[in-house]
Design a binder for these strands. Structure first.
Lengths: 296, 296
DNA sequence: GGGTGTCAATATAGTTTCTATACGTACTTT
DNA sequence: AAAGTACGTATAGAAACTATATTGACACCC
């Protein structure tokens, strides 16, 4: 018996999945596609294709004039569950320059582009050191460039988690100087050094641990039909959706969705949703900003 | 000679890269990690580890008491170029629910969370049909729910590209009815049918093809030190950066960066950047909205 | 309309990789 | 001291893969 559940080796399974992926999303593939991506010999690629044909005879057929294998009319994937959001996520990664197209299984895509957003890249050595510090529950001294002070300064922090506002990642950490938990944007780390006992345990970061259910509803000025569309856009059941948000991410969440001000005042054409539990959210927002320094 | 450049088979190379990945980002790994992920036998995993040790003796050492292989102090990756943004991108994909954690090479991550954004998922069958239509340069009839009309309606479009505002993907297509190119949000597609000659060639979509260089500069109200930080955040050289943006994505770009109104009027604490070439951008924006229907 | 190039199928022999199994070692835990 | 765990090594045999060569179908091009 093989260690693998399927009885097929990992490499083979990957190639069969690759064949199916190409057939599903691009409608066709070549023997050469397989040899190029996996570096196998031509006969081996032939072998994989006939193997796939045996396993899924209704999925694939060879077009002699096109000299390519085509997906049949009633194609039914057996190796993968097609996921459009995953496909699109790959497109975005390529467009953002974070994933080389060659390393994906995509080759024959249409023209595409994700809205460009210039951002400084994060230094891998710095992220690596932060991850190690979090893992080992230690503290570290960082050379950090904050927006409030002109010059970067050295300070001790005890990091415990990573958070993102959708664009940029920050590390959630206890600042030894101010004795509170704060967000430190990864691109603003200039250097790191040292290693010491932690300044506070991760559990002490209540703002990070606590969640609030933000209720979103369609903008009241929208017509009934429009409200239905917006409800669908956001996956609402009925005409509202509850989104659990960490207090530590609530500021970013409200800002991103333009819910930090009076969303109802903005024209419904631009602002599709408003808060359903404004008072609760405002209260939570206030709580998230009122941190009292830990006693030393 | 092998087909592979490295002389090592694809499967083996993947495992060696896996070992290195774990050592770099997580600092340690097990024989069991390899057998679990790749489904190879225990001796094979041992073999891979000793092979890696041979190839990179200074990178790895076995900790007998920990019963794990640890990355050495002066670890130097030889199989992969570590990329922090790629690592973080994987975290985001996991957090967004678009990538199962098991399918990544990550296992021992810190706590993390990317800001949640509720969105309707895209139907893979619909995306697949659209991709095929674009590939074959055909037109298709779509059942589309727009925001402006209460009920979804059927209409013919000729799609030619995919675009994203950073959150949602749309297809860029020629609308046969209005005879102009428009964006159709993928989550709003309800159904598809038919197949016909195209209504217009992709080249006719000038708004898609044309780019404008948007110049971003730090908010003038910021102090000198703050401007420097913002410049770093956005990867500016000097104190400005030129971002080439398709006219078809310009609206989303300005809206996302809060540059659609008078950015200078907003408090610099919230609004870090403003436009450096406002007049050009406004003109381009106007152009992107003034589409005249194609003659029939 | 026949030469030429391309891509796929098939066959054979030899090599590499991998599995299954078994046994031994070092260290930790109870 | 005994049990448990993770790693290492060795062996035989199975599976996967390569290199090479031959054949066939089709498109393209003077």
């Amino acid at each position: 018996m093989k260690a693998d559940d399927s009885g097929i080796r990992w490499g083979v399974e990957q190639r069969l999945e690759f064949i199916e992926f190409r057939l599903f999303w691009e409608g066709a593939l070549n023997r050469a596609d397989i040899t190029r991506y996996f570096g196998v010999s031509v006969p081996q690629a032939s072998n994989d294709l006939s193997r796939y044909q045996e396993l899924a005879p209704n999925n694939i057929e060879y077009d002699r004039s096109d000299k390519r294998y085509l997906a049949s009319k009633r194609f039914k994937p057996i190796f993968l569950k097609p996921d459009a959001d995953r496909y699109l996520n790959q497109l975005r990664s390529i467009s953002d320059g974070v994933l080389p197209a060659q390393q994906t299984w995509l080759s024959n895509t249409p023209e595409f582009e994700s809205m460009p957003l210039p951002r400084r890249r994060v230094d891998p050595a710095i992220l690596r050191a932060l991850l190690a510090t979090i893992r080992e529950k230690r503290s570290i001294q960082i050379h950090y460039q904050s927006l409030t002070r002109a010059d970067a300064m050295w300070r001790w922090i005890t990091p415990h988690a990573l958070g993102s506002d959708g664009f940029r990642w920050h590390v959630r950490a206890f600042c030894h100087e101010e004795r509170i938990f704060k967000d430190f944007l990864l691109p603003r780390f200039l250097d790191l050094k040292g290693d010491a006992e932690p300044g506070a345990p991760a559990e002490a970061d209540h703002i990070w641990a606590e969640h609030i259910d933000v209720v979103l509803i369609p903008h009241p000025d929208l017509t009934k039909g429009q409200r239905r569309v917006v409800a669908l856009d956001f996956g609402m059941t009925g005409e509202s959706i509850k989104v659990p948000v960490r207090l530590a991410l609530l500021y970013y969440f409200l800002k991103r969705l333009n819910l930090d001000g009076d969303a109802e005042r903005r024209p419904s054409k631009e602002q599709h949703i408003v808060l359903g539990n404004k008072a609760d959210v405002r209260a939570a927002m206030k709580r998230s900003q009122e941190q009292t320094p830990l006693a030393a």
